[in-house]
C-alpha cells in the first residue's frame, strides 16, 4: 500500500524551457540506471530479503525512488513547457516529439524505451544487494554526467540533491550487506524432536 503526498521530495521550479536539457534528463526517468528501474528493482527484490534491516531498507529506498522518478518527470515536464517547433527541431527532440509529443515517456536519452532487462531480482539477498550497490554507483555516475552537461541552476539544484541520495543509498545497502553476512555466519544449533519409533 502506498500513500501519495501532494508535494515533491525536493522542489523543482524551472524558469527557462530547454529542449536539449529535457532530452538528456530522460536518461534518469526511463534509462537503464534511472529512477524507474531503481524503484522496481528494490520493490521487487524486497520479497526475498531475509534480514529485517534489508527488508526495511529495500522497501523504503524503493519507495523513495518513486519520489525521485516524480522529480525527473517534473524536470522534463517543466523544461518542455511551451517549447516551439523550432526549438524542438534545433535540439534534435523531433524524433521524440513525433512519437510522444511533449508527454513524459519512460525512455533513455537515446530513445530506448524502458526495459526491465537492465535490472535483476535474483532471489538471493547477497547477489541482489551487490547489484543494488552497483546500481547506486551507476546512477551517481549518470548524475555526474548530467551535471557536466547542465548550466541552468534551476536544474542543477534537484540534480545535485538526487546525486547525494545515490551516495546515501549506496552506504545503506553496504550496511545491509554487512549485517546479512554477520547473520549468515552465525552458528546455529538445530535440535531434532525425539522420535518414538515404537509408536508407544
Amino acid at each position: 500500500m502506498w500513500i501519495y503526498e501532494k508535494k515533491l521530495e525536493f522542489p523543482v521550479k524551472i524558469k527557462n524551457r530547454d529542449a536539449r536539457l529535457a532530452k538528456i534528463m530522460l536518461e534518469q526517468y526511463g534509462g537503464a540506471d534511472g529512477e524507474l528501474g531503481a524503484s522496481i528493482r528494490y520493490l521487487s527484490q524486497r520479497f526475498s530479503m531475509i534480514t529485517p534491516e534489508a527488508k526495511a531498507t529495500l522497501n523504503d529506498i524503493g519507495t523513495e525512488e518513486l519520489a525521485h522518478l516524480e522529480i525527473m518527470g517534473t524536470i522534463f515536464s517543466q523544461l518542455t513547457d511551451g517549447l516551439s517547433v523550432e526549438e524542438i527541431k534545433a535540439a534534435g527532440l523531433d524524433p521524440y516529439y513525433v512519437a510522444h509529443g511533449l508527454g513524459v515517456y519512460p525512455a533513455s536519452a537515446a530513445g530506448i524505451p524502458f526495459s526491465a532487462v537492465g535490472l535483476q531480482s535474483k532471489g538471493n539477498p547477497v547477489a541482489d544487494l551487490y547489484e543494488n550497490m552497483a546500481a547506486e554507483q551507476k546512477a551517481k555516475a549518470t548524475y555526474d554526467y548530467l551535471i557536466d552537461l547542465t548550466d541552468d541552476p534551476d536544474v542543477l539544484r534537484p540534480l545535485r540533491f538526487l546525486r547525494e541520495r545515490e551516495i546515501v543509498h549506496f552506504q545503506r545497502f553496504g550496511e545491509c550487506l554487512d549485517i546479512l553476512r554477520d547473520y549468515m555466519n552465525e552458528k546455529r544449533m538445530i535440535v531434532m524432536p525425539e522420535i518414538n519409533l515404537l509408536n508407544k
Binding site: 508535494k7 515533491l8 521530495e9 522542489p11 531498507t57 523504503d60 546515501v168 545503506r172 545491509c176 549485517i179
Partner: peptide, 23 residues
C-alpha cells in the same frame, strides 16, 4: 510552510533509512 514541511519530511526520510541499519 511548504519549505519547512519539505525540510522536515526529508530529515525523517533520511533518518528513517539510517535507523533501518542502526536501530
Amino acid at each position: 510552510i511548504l519549505q519547512s514541511l519539505t525540510a522536515l519530511d526529508f530529515m525523517a526520510v533520511d533518518l528513517g533509512l539510517y535507523l533501518n541499519t542502526h536501530p
